[in-house]
Simulated assay, not measured.
Amino acid sequence: MTRTLAVSLAASVSFAAVAPAYADASPELIAAAKKEGQLTVIALPHDWCGYGAVIAGFKAKYGLTINELNPDAGSGDEVEAIKANKGNTGPQAPDVIDVGLSFGPTAKEQGLIQPYKVSTWATIPDAAKDKDGYWYGDYYGVLAFEVNKDIVKDSPKDWPDLLKSDYANSVALAGDPRTANQAIQGVYAAGLSAAKGDASKAAAEGLKFFGELQKKGNFVPVVGKIASLTQGATPIIIRWDYNALADRDNGKGTAIDVVVPQTGVVAGVYVQAISAYAPHPNAAKLWMEYLYSDEGQLGWLKGYCHPIRFNDLAANKKIPAELLAKLPPAEAYAKAVFPTLDEQNAAKAEITKGWDSVVGAQVK
């Protein structure tokens, strides 16, 4: 990703409006997908980005069965699932993946994904897509603190606060930082805060920060989820704001606070791609058409993700006012930083390699 994208996404509306209406997927594609009859997805928990409703909407619209693999998998696991099932046309072979930005170009280089340009291609910012259509941004958010207020009375306001004795045995990542993009970005964000915005030092400082968090007994080596949060096992989770905001609405009686830190505000773009070995390639293409339609994009926004076509939808007044009212105020995102692909790749390599030796916590 480029810094240009960072500026554009942070703005309320900065991309030129394109045509306000788009045709549905072609009858030929719909027919071909229905003939295949099934789509296999991976790593799509229903409480992530509104995916539960998005999946239901796709099934209702086209009548296809969706086979859902390992909803708790990380981006690295998704790529490995393609590799492991190259010659497999059975139910364990994913047709599509939804991964962190840095995983898209890597998967392309390894020949694991195939190109496809959706009908709304022109409304996806150039900086958020592969020019040949191998991968394309779908949504973005920022790393935030999700806090169980029934247990933690004073929410942390910034990364250094997490080191306080008040938060002993309380802080968790939402994934394994050796494989999961969300967790890797969490380490990076903490480091960017410690490095005062110096991206070249963020990974090292992030590892050092979590090493200190582990040493103080504040870090919990468990993958943080809504269940562990409400049960008190991980009363503070570092995770994408859209997941935390969805939990706030669905906490089932638990009071949840969502805090965007004062420094080290890291935004992350996720990308979609179709497996080069997809057993159901037409169903995969139809899935992409749905995700990048107005309906699909608004489905993600209802799950508190900023869809990649957000500015286009806003320019064409397609976002319901009541939906906009539920989103956090724009000033919470004013300091958001969108790491470049080079920065992400360098940080991912350093964090995944150094976690065991510097931090030494086996996240499970």
Score class of each variant (00 low, 15 high):
A336N: 06
I236P: 05
G186P: 06
Q272M: 14
I82Q: 02
D312N: 13
A315S: 02
E80N: 15
L143D: 06
Q262E: 14
R248T: 14
A347Q: 01
A73S: 13
A321P: 13
A144W: 03
G104N: 06
N345G: 14
A194E: 05
D356H: 10
I351W: 00
K216C: 00
A204Q: 09
E331C: 05
K208A: 14
Y292C: 01
A168I: 12
L324D: 11
P94M: 07
G63I: 07
E78K: 02
G111V: 05
V269C: 04
N316H: 11
T234M: 04
V99N: 05
D47G: 10
A190C: 03
V223I: 13
I30R: 02
G175W: 00
P125A: 02
S26L: 05
Y242E: 06
G217E: 13
K157A: 15
V258L: 08
L29P: 08
V79N: 05
W287E: 06
D47H: 13
Q38F: 13
L324W: 08
V337P: 01
T179Q: 11
D72M: 15
A93F: 01
A361L: 09
G63Y: 04
Y290E: 00
Q214A: 15
R248N: 13
A336Y: 04
F58W: 03
F103E: 07
A93H: 05
A32L: 11
P329K: 11
A43R: 04
P329W: 07
L301T: 04
W240Q: 11
A314T: 08
K326R: 14
G100Q: 02
C305I: 01
A73W: 12
F58A: 03
T65V: 15
D342M: 11
E78G: 10
R309P: 00
I42T: 02
V265E: 02
A144C: 09
A23R: 15
V222E: 12
D95I: 08
L323M: 15
F338H: 08
A93V: 08
D98W: 12
E80I: 12
E109P: 10
D72T: 15
Y277T: 02
G141F: 00
H280L: 13
I274L: 09
A276V: 05
P160N: 03
S75V: 05
V18P: 14
N316F: 03
P339C: 00
A349P: 04
G268F: 13
A180Y: 04
E68H: 10
S165H: 10
E289T: 04
N70M: 14
S170P: 07
A334H: 09
L313K: 02
I113G: 07
G57R: 07
P156F: 00
K35R: 15
L163Q: 01
N169Q: 15
I226R: 10
T4W: 12
K108L: 09
L162K: 00
G76P: 08
T263W: 10
G251C: 14
A204S: 13
K196W: 09
V187H: 03
L112C: 00
S165I: 12
D198A: 10
V152G: 08
Q362A: 15
K131Y: 10
G57C: 02
A314F: 07
N148W: 02
F15K: 14
V54G: 01
A332Q: 15
D247P: 00
S14C: 14
A16Y: 14
A330I: 10
N181W: 12
L298S: 07
A315Y: 00
Q344T: 12
N70P: 11
G111W: 07
P27H: 03
Y139M: 12
A314W: 06
